[in-house]
Amino acid sequence: MGEVLFVILISAMITFGLRLLPFLIFRNGTDLPNRIKRLGEILPSAIMAILIVYCLKDIGNNFMADGIWSLTAVLIVVVSYKWKHSTLLSILLGTVSYMLLLHI
């Protein structure tokens, strides 16, 4: 099982290294290049969009049994959040609906 430890630790180093990389590249001086600074500011909303697509990437696999319920639950989240603006309420409503819809 020594090999398993080795594999886990190597994977950990690569993962940490990737997260650290931008800090190593832009560590000189205190001023970040303006371009990178602006990119860091506008990236979150683009990345959120990509993460949503990532979460829903499987909906085409089995649309009638699963995908349609994911989309319905997303719609519930959007509408309830527009209405009440409560993060926890919308997450609860969306997730419970999705779990129930999966079982009907």
Partner: peptide, 26 residues
């Protein structure tokens, strides 16, 4: 988690005047 990403996306949509980054991401 999907729900959370959707909500944060909506928050950022309301906060940012320019929606180009969100739309291009999608």
């Amino acid at each position: 988690m999907t729900a959370l990403f959707v909500i944060i996306f909506m928050d950022q949509w309301e906060k940012n005047k320019n929606h180009f980054p969100a739309v291009i991401g999608l």
